[in-house]
Design a protein around this nucleic acid. Structure first.
Lengths: 353, 353
DNA sequence: CTCCTTAGTGTAAGCGGTTACACGAATTTG
DNA sequence: CAAATTCGTGTAACCGCTTACACTAAGGAG
């Protein structure tokens, strides 16, 4: 079932069928109708590969999702909830113009670059959700096709970056703990250092702390973004004498915050009375736990949407200057920071720069 | 940067380059090396569209995800958590053989069929996650390319179906409530009737009830799979006189169960003491709420994996007989059914058929 | 030393569309 | 009414890769 079959059947040339298919040129109404009828009758659908080849445009964008299977970070806990929202965001601009989305999960290993290469042959542009390949490799790729980093480190040349404003979000959160709840001893549960957003959040934590004399970081723990990491951090805290314990535990994501909170509670520490716990991401579960989790909300869907739009712009015009776009985050005050069980209203804080 | 450029540079024919690229034929070692060096130096990557066209195989499978934006079912609550796991399951067999995954979100509307058609031109086979198009349309599609229904109604001809065993799971759950907790008045919060799994669960609920004389369904509510639906159902229950209330509320998914539970609790009804509440799906949040949610776990990742493998098999051999495969579900007993806060161990119940 | 294999490589015909260009017919213009 | 447009359509090259087939050179068998 090809264009030729349709053309023969309708007794026209393939050019005419193609014209009918795309409404481009002027085709006599009667011819058009005849061709359309044949197409309908034959159930003809154009072959995407042939179209891509001929148009020199695949009309496909690729999305690389990181599949972290590292020890201590199982799938459920890591990127779950994050990817799906981003995905929907991405699909929206892509679908609007009739393009498609090719997705691939990759582990950060030595096969990643090869797989990326092969993927790069099948798409017009790439959305990479994190630094799964080294910087030089990325640069090589970027020379061949447009690349937008989603939540990546903003220091790559030749790529665009769209990210949530981890810095401002984290600082607002810390500021809230210090200024509203008078926390003076903060404990930080970080994400893996190779994740750019984990680094950004941790740096912002330090930065904000530096702005408040008398407030100290009384401990760090690298929890790898898994709830088990939060649990381990909590155990470390529980192992210290009561008076050396922090006032508040700031976690680089919600899963770890939930893990930490539960472990503290299971050992008789009241949250937030004894120790406050806060997270980052605003996952669905955060609103359900007791006490409900104070956190920072990332516009995940918007993240996907903006990244994809940017990519499409760049595909359309590769000469565009490269940009870094930071999307605003929003402080979500709930109970685990020590605030009263507030009405569902979400409070918006602002940090001074 | 095409195959021809490489061929010219290496002073061989395109055929030889192609052979080197795929290791198929015997190529002299020295030639091979020279070609590989040139490829490396030029950073050549084969064009996917051209390969697809030439091979008559796109090496791409499509996944259609339902995007329900209907009233009362926002995105977060509906398929969240479901899709992502399935996705990862699907990607695994696909990635193993170097194929790709094309994904599209679709709303069930009048454009769906057209979009599906267009998608069908870009892939070798389709994974459809629900009945987003009518049965005859599906049949037409299935005539042109292999289709596997993920969690679909098993009565389609010409398509394969892979689904979780909603029936057995639901029956085990109901059986548990009745036999262990002596529930006699059950209230059912259903999903939207157009969703095949919603229908399957509801039917199983009725079926199991019929097996227990003296046990009655004291109410139904269609909650559209959103937690707000659970809330509304709970309000309906709260509006009835205390003695007319159910012993247990069985929800077609966890989000609704959580919604119902919170609304009941907010109005002074103790769960599970006054009324038990159970769900379906075993989402991450279910373990975190208080009381923790008794539910049925679906092997979502396996679902994706099996569906995809089946599709690949069918693409390889279209003559294969069509099959329906039901994947086992697992009863997850926690607290919300009335069981004591058990150790983390998960209990496996079994229902007699 | 001829004939037959086999290794190694090239030629060129597709794969299924798109589209620049060409061309006759119909229509408009002066 | 001839010339200039405009309309409607066909011809065929091209997109980049794969692969059947053909061919040469070298090695082995008789």
């Amino acid at each position: 079932m090809t264009l030729y079959d349709v053309a023969r059947e309708a007794d026209v040339s393939t050019a005419t069928v193609s014209r009918v298919l795309h409404g481009h040129d002027r085709v006599k109404a009667s011819t058009r109708q005849r061709v359309l009828d044949i197409i309908e009758a034959l159930g003809y659908v154009p072959d995407g590969a042939a179209q891509s080849l001929s148009r020199k445009r695949k009309q496909i964008v690729g999305l690389i999702a990181v599949e972290s299977r590292g020890p201590g970070s199982d799938i459920e806990q890591t990127s779950l909830l994050f990817l799906e929202e981003v995905l929907r965001g991405v699909e929206s601009p892509v679908g609007d113009i009739g393009w498609s989305l090719l997705i691939s999960f990759m582990v950060r290993d030595d096969t990643a670059y090869a797989r990326l290469q092969s993927m790069s042959g099948k798409v017009d542009g790439l959305l990479i959700s994190e630094g799964i390949v080294s910087s030089p490799e990325l640069a090589t790729l970027a020379r061949r096709l447009p690349i937008v980093l989603v939540a990546g480190s903003p220091d790559e040349p030749n790529v665009d970056v769209v990210d949530a404003d981890n810095r401002t979000g984290t600082r607002a959160l810390v500021c809230h703990l210090v200024e509203v709840h008078n926390a003076t001893r903060l404990y930080y549960v970080a994400g893996p250092d190779e994740a750019p957003d984990a680094r950004a959040r941790r740096n912002a934590f330090d930065e904000e702390l530096a702005r408040h004399p008398g407030v100290t970081a009384c401990g760090y723990f690298e929890g790898r973004f898994a709830s088990s990491g939060g649990k381990l951090a909590a155990q470390e805290i529980l192992a210290t004498p009561r008076r050396d314990r922090p006032d508040a535990v700031v976690c680089a994501n919600d899963q770890m915050a939930i893990g930490a909170m539960r472990e503290l509670q299971a050992n008789g520490v009241a949250v937030p009375t004894d120790i406050a716990v806060v997270g980052f991401d605003d996952i669905y579960s955060g609103a359900l736990v007791t006490p409900s989790l104070t956190t920072v909300s990332q516009p995940m869907r918007l993240l996907g949407e903006r990244a994809c739009s940017r990519l499409l712009e760049r595909i359309a015009d590769p000469a565009l200057p490269h940009q870094v776009e930071l999307l605003p985050t929003r402080l979500v005050i709930r109970e685990s920071c020590g605030c009263a069980a507030a009405p569902a209203a979400l409070v918006q804080d602002r940090v001074q720069r």
